[in-house]
Amino acid sequence: MEDGFGWNTGQIRQATILPEAQVFTINGPDDWAFLCRRFPLDLPMSNVPNWTMATGYPHKWVIPDYVQVAKHYDGVHLNIQGYLATAGRVVVTDGNRAGILAGWDPGQTYWLTDVVELGEPVTWRNHSQTQEEKDWRPLKMH
């Protein structure tokens, strides 16, 4: 985990995606702009002062309205190419609005509907003596 908090245990579950799942993949800035344009959720300027300060973009900000996205797609996936090309950059969606892809990890998928079936959780533990070393193994079942 990038920028982890020193955790020594974690849980994973097997995820089975139903075959009929419709997933929108973000391959780059054009795909992020598409989501922001087609399903816009305008953000109040009071919520995004850091984006304005960090980028210098002086106009309005928009993100996808995921309630609306969920009516068309079961999930939104950010592939590694899309992350590298889009994360943290101003993506102009029209003449006076832009979106910024923030808070996503490369390869992450946000599921918006119930098309994912989760298996039983398996707890893993880092058996290393230091945080720098990694020796993650599943805990034994009793």
Rank of each mutant, 00 (worst) to 15 (best):
T55Y: 00
M141F: 13
V48P: 14
L84F: 13
T93D: 02
E120P: 07
L84T: 13
G4S: 08
V48M: 11
G82V: 06
H59M: 06
V23S: 01
W136E: 00
F39W: 10
N96G: 12
A102P: 04
Q131R: 09
E117W: 08
L84A: 12
E120F: 10
R89V: 07
T55W: 02
I17H: 06
V91K: 00
F24V: 08
Q68M: 14
N79S: 01
L18Q: 04
R37I: 08
C36L: 04
V76C: 02
I12K: 04
T109H: 11
L18E: 02
R89A: 06
Y73C: 01
T109C: 11
E117V: 15
G88Q: 02
G107F: 11
Y83I: 07
F34M: 03
D135R: 06
H59N: 06
N96E: 13
G99H: 04
Q68K: 13
T16G: 08
E133D: 14
E133P: 11
S128G: 05
Y73M: 02
T86V: 07
D135F: 11
Q131P: 09
N27E: 09
D3P: 04
K140Q: 11
G10T: 15
D31T: 14
K140G: 12
E20W: 14
Q108K: 06
D42K: 13
S46I: 15
I80D: 05
D3V: 08
H127V: 15
Q11P: 14
R13E: 02
M45A: 15
